[in-house]
Structure formats: C-alpha cells, structure tokens
Design a binder for these strands. Structure first.
Lengths: 198, 198
DNA sequence: TTATAACACAACATGGTGTTCAGTGCACCG
DNA sequence: CGGTGCACTGAACACCATGTTGTGTTATAA
C-alpha cells in the first residue's frame, strides 16, 4: 500500500483544507463527513481511507502543529538553559504567527480546549524553570501560579493572533516577559514605538 | 400550561442531574437524548417538552450559574468601587466553591470554552478598573493584559477547584491578588498555614 | 366530578455513520 | 505495449440518533 505517496498526501491535504474552511465557519459537531468530501470533491468513502472520523482529522491537524512546534523549538533552541527566556518566547510567538490561521482558531474560545491544554503542557517545563523555580514557592503554589501564567499566556496569545497587526512582535513579547517577571507596571517603556534595536 | 410547576421543575431537575452525571464522565458529543432520559427514568419524548436538544440543556445550566453569580455579586457587593478587590475576589471564589461540581468541569480543559468566555466577560469590568485603569497602558496593551489576567484567573481557579483542600481560600485569594498587583514574589507570607483568624 | 397538565408509548421520516464490494481510470514497470 | 496495482468511485448496507406526531393513561387542581 501507499505506492503513490504524493497523491495520497495531496488527497489528505485537500480533505484537511475542506474541513478547515468549514471549521472556521461553524462548530465541530455540525460538520459531517459528507460535507467535507462534497466540498473537497471526493467520494464519501475516500474520507474513511485516511481518517476514522471528523475528530480524528482534527486530532491529526493538532498533532502536526504541536509536533512541529516542539521540533522547531528543540532544533533551533537546543537546551533552553543556554538561552534567555525572551529569545525562547520570541520564537514561540513567531511559530504561532506562521500558523496563525490554525492557532487563532484552535486557541480561541471557539477552539478546542484539549488542544489548548496540550499547548500549555508543551510550555510548562520552561515556565516552571524560568518563572517559578528557586523562588521558594510551595509545590501547590507553584502548580497554581504555573497554571495562571500558562492560561494567561495562551489567552493573550490567542487574542493577539486575532489581529497581530495591532502590536508588533517585540512589544508583544515584552508584555509576556513583563507578566512573567511580575515587574511593576511601567508600560511607558513599551509605548514608545520603533527603536527596537538594542 | 404549567399547572403543576413543582412537578415540572422536579422533572427538569431530574433530567439535568442525569445529564450532568453523564457529562462528568464523557464529552458532550457522545451524550444522546436517549441516554439521558433512560438514566432519569423518563420517556425520550419528555426531554423535548423542556429542552430543544442536549446543547440547549447545557446552555440552561450555564445560564443559571452565570445569572446566579452575577446576581449574588450585585446583591452582596453593590457598587464594586466601595469595596476592595480582595473582598470581591474572595466572594467570587466562594461562589465558585459552592458550585464546584459544575465549575470544576465547565472551566476545566474538558469543559466548555464558551462558558469560560462568558465567565471571563463577567469579571472583565472589575479587573479592568482595578488592575489596569490609570496605569497608563495603551488600549491594545490593556486589552491583552486583561485577557492574560482573565484567562490566568480562570485557569488557576479551575485547577484549584479540582482539589480545593490543598490550599485554603484565604491563601488562594492571596495568590490571585499577588498576580493582579504584579507584586514581587514573596511567597513565604503565604506559606505559613493556620492562623486564619483576623 | 371533570378538565387538563404531565407524561408514556409507539411509530414515523430524515439523515448521518461506518462498512463493503464491484468497478473504473490512471500510472508505473517490465 | 500490455499488465499489475493503486486511488478512488458509486451504490448499497445495517445501524442508530434525531425530532415530531398522535393516541393514550394518570393524577391532580378547580
């Protein structure tokens, strides 16, 4: 089986594209296999050659995104300790910006809470180390504060992705770091635009 | 119609209880009307006398919770400005604790993102005023930071509700306020247990 | 006592699901 | 060329949930 990988990949991609154009419009539970294949121009049976059901299709999209995020992070930033948190978060945000079409939906309130949970799990180790470790928190305190930062970051990222044009990447990452460090509010360092060079 | 209000209310309650015991176990999309009525001991048609479908049932539960939350807040804390943020957040957390069985599920990663969004909208005005206003933030900055705090608060609350026994209410509210004020980490003031009396 | 609200029971058309299987067209390989 | 096999079609299948409807039964409120 799979003698023509490029053809099958194209078919899967077509189905995925069709699904996504529907998912961007309406909730998952109202999307049928019939609709997807009709939109993509395939027979309904073809869908089942590649996916078990609609949820499986969404899962595969999510898996790919998360895998790529993790892969890129490990590839370009091997050993987080050697880099600073700002560089790390910059890269996280950049990657999300590349796939903004997906992330903006999946992380939003119309999205999939399970995807958001997995996204947060991916960032948890870094935040734990940089934001919480060595600050003398109880285990319970750490866990709760970690959740605060993870959920907050995810929520703010989702909102920024809705319209990234309103604030540039450097300023946005600055906001993130400000929340991480618990710095006293000094927003005017952010208000000045331009002059991003160190 | 509705000549016997107490009976119909009991029936609706029975259906809701049956639904909830299913929702606590498995995702919404795998819960059928047949299951609910079978568990509650009614005919399937009875369900449609009171609810349009399963989503309608969930929505009614959510509406009731949010309405009660808003009602209690307005009733006991009329005019937020006259009270301090600590009192307000204490009360918010208390109310959530009362309905922990619902909130812990609805706000969790297994829950309903739309409910979480509505919950956040309810708290948005207070946070905006107390945490962000008058600090010189840009509109865009305010909106993003507000989302950070709302999402963070909601996430941390959801996690705390999973097992409220691990940290008492005062300490938990202390954590929340710490995040709001962006105070420099001084966790040891929280670590001391007991001595909750003022 | 009687009207009727609350609910049961059963049947219905509709539509999605997941599977199967014979058939078609195209690509690649000898 | 011509054969082999893969990707896909088309149609049918049984199954199940949906939402609705019509006809009952029962208990209670007036």
């Amino acid at each position: 089986m799979n003698k023509r990988p490029e053809l099958t990949e194209q078919t899967k991609r077509n189905l995925r594209t069709a699904f996504w154009s529907l998912y961007a419009q309406k909730p998952l539970e109202k999307i049928s296999v019939r609709e997807i294949t009709a939109l993509a121009g395939y027979n309904r049976g073809t869908f089942y050659l590649y996916y078990q059901d609609v949820y499986d299709l969404l899962n595969q999209i999510e898996d790919e995104l998360l895998d790529e995020l993790q892969r890129l992070l490990k590839e370009r930033l091997p050993g987080v300790l050697e880099h600073d948190l700002g560089e790390y978060m910059s890269f996280v945000v950049e990657i999300n910006l590349i796939h903004a079409e997906y992330g903006a939906v999946l992380l939003s309130s119309r999205g999939d809470p399970r995807f958001a949970a997995r996204f947060k799990e991916l960032l948890a180790p870094v935040l734990r180390r940089y934001v919480l470790d060595g600050k003398g928190f109880t285990d319970t305190e750490s866990e709760l504060l970690l959740e605060y930062h993870l959920a907050g970051l995810q929520g703010m990222l989702a909102r920024w992705l809705q319209d990234p044009g309103r604030m540039n990447l450097e300023q946005f990452v600055g906001l993130i770091l400000r929340m991480f460090t618990g710095e006293a509010p000094a927003p005017h360092t952010l208000e000045q635009k331009g002059e991003d060079k160190p």
